[in-house]
Amino acid sequence: MKMKSMKKVVGPEYNLGDKIKTNVYAVGVAMQESVYPHTATVFYPRERKKMPDNFRGFILFDPDKCISCFNCSFVCPANAIRMKEAPNKRYYPTVDYGRCIFCHFCIDSCSGGALKATKIHDVAYKDMDAMFTPTEEMIELPEIIREDKKYVEYEIKEDDLHLKRTKGEDYLFVEVPPPKEIPMVSTCIDPGSCIGCRVCADVCEHGAISASVEDGGTLRMKIDTDECTGCGLCVKECSMQILMLNKLERE
């Protein structure tokens, strides 16, 4: 059965007639194309190819939506995102474009939708230090040199590829709705094992965890479900590994 599904390919064998014929074909294509060319060129600096809205370019950041979960930093395969402490003592991302590979894993990991994609991708830096972008510069859309007066779309129609040119400037930023909300909270699955190291409380950026001494002198960590953003940092850091993220069942 396997044999049957294999197709044997044999290269062509030319006699004199075929040789002349193929020569004529080759010359024919060249001549035809120099008269009616199927040009596929985008005249870049003067026009710009329109990239689809899901294009993965430079990254913007919205501090209001950030829960400082470090997900973007943890997932970044190039370690381009490093968190920097802001004046309000929260950690916010910075991007080093000298490393970023534009995989947008960070954006796909940001549950609050604080990171957003732009369509900026044609930038040249004079020196490497400038490639590091602090949080403050990621908030608004940067300005790039635009020499383009038109934008071009590659339209793949049934017969062929067509270039559709439109006058005007293409937009570089698309607002997308934030990702679906899947609320999670941290819960302690085995309070008995807690050694009271308070790592979780230290690491929580939202002050959701506090320590309380119960009667009998045992230390209990209390997690405030309203404050908890489900970022999961405490889960990761817990020395006894007794914290877990659970889906928040809202009534």
């Binding site: 060319p37 040009t39 060129t41």
Partner: peptide, 9 residues
Amino acid sequence: LCGRAQWRV
């Protein structure tokens, strides 16, 4: 000319 025949400019 070659450019033209090669779908570019």
